[in-house]
């Protein structure tokens, strides 16, 4: 890959950071982090990146269908977040939807820049989901994967191995070298945290 990352200026003055109280960044809300990123806080940007990079990459993969282009799109999406975080207004809503919109737009821009393949008239009905359905599915995936990133590693690990690693609970226990009961306890705890984090989606 030879892609480069372009970051433009326009960030607020660094002095503005003095108005934001010190917090544990790992426990900070998305909104807190975005406000800090808007003032040029590199550490907040790093935390935000770790929280959302996989979700953005997943969204880019679904939209673009090419790993290389999706990787570049992730870089561009976060460049866009860095560039425009100063425009985030907390009173207009939480950070996750704002991030989703910025990332989605950056990914769409990246998709428009690649050459269009020669299209052919399909001879079978299109079974792809409708745009509204696709947007809904993308948003749910975004929220679920973002919430997963917030779990303690030990809980996320057992959930990912069970749901997408193809391992039974016994195999997960063997893989991790821990008792089966511990695997189940961690799964229960992790799912419980996810339920709390995803309350809006569970309605």
């Amino acid at each position: 890959m030879t892609a480069t990352l372009a970051l433009s200026l326009g960030l607020p003055a660094a002095a503005a950071t003095a108005t934001i109280p010190a917090v544990d960044l790992r426990a900070a809300t998305d909104g807190d982090l975005l406000q800090r990123v808007g003032t040029g806080d590199r550490d907040a940007f790093e935390v935000l990146y770790r929280r959302y990079a996989r979700s953005v990459f997943g969204l880019a993969l679904r939209r673009l269908g090419d790993r290389g282009i999706a990787e570049d799109a992730v870089q561009e999406a976060f460049a866009s977040v860095w560039r425009s975080a100063g425009t985030y207004r907390r009173d207009r809503g939480p950070g996750a939807p704002w991030l989703y919109t910025v990332a989605r737009n950056a990914i769409a821009d990246r998709g428009r820049r690649r050459p269009e393949p020669v299209s052919e008239v399909p001879d079978t009905p299109d079974h792809e989901p409708l745009p509204g359905e696709r947007a809904e599915a993308e948003w749910v995936s975004w929220r679920v994967h973002s919430a997963l990133e917030e779990l303690p590693f030990s809980e996320r690990q057992v959930i990912e191995l069970a749901y997408w690693g193809g391992l039974s609970q016994t195999e997960v226990a063997d893989f991790l070298g821990i008792p089966l009961g511990t695997v189940k306890t961690r799964t229960r705890s992790g799912l419980g945290r996810l339920a709390a984090a995803l309350e809006g989606e569970l309605e």
């Binding site: 990352l5 970051l7 200026l9 960030l11 590199r42 940007f45 790093e46 935000l48 990146y49 770790r50 990079a53 996989r54 979700s55 990459f57 997943g58 993969l61 790993r67 999706a70 990787e71 992730v74 870089q75 976060f78 460049a79 860095w82 599915a137 749910v140 995936s141 679920v144 994967h145 997963l148 959930i159 990912e160 749901y163 997408w164 229960r188 799912l191 419980g192 996810l194 339920a195 995803l198 989606e201 569970l202």
Partner: peptide, 30 residues
């Protein structure tokens, strides 16, 4: 309660695996 989360996890599918070079945020500066 957990069943609803379970359904969301199943419908969301596997999260993308970040390649190692994307595990850190892009460098920023001006």
């Amino acid at each position: 309660r957990l069943a609803r989360v379970h359904e969301l996890l199943v419908s969301a599918g596997a999260p993308a695996e970040l390649p190692p070079h994307l595990e850190s945020a892009p460098r920023t500066g001006r």
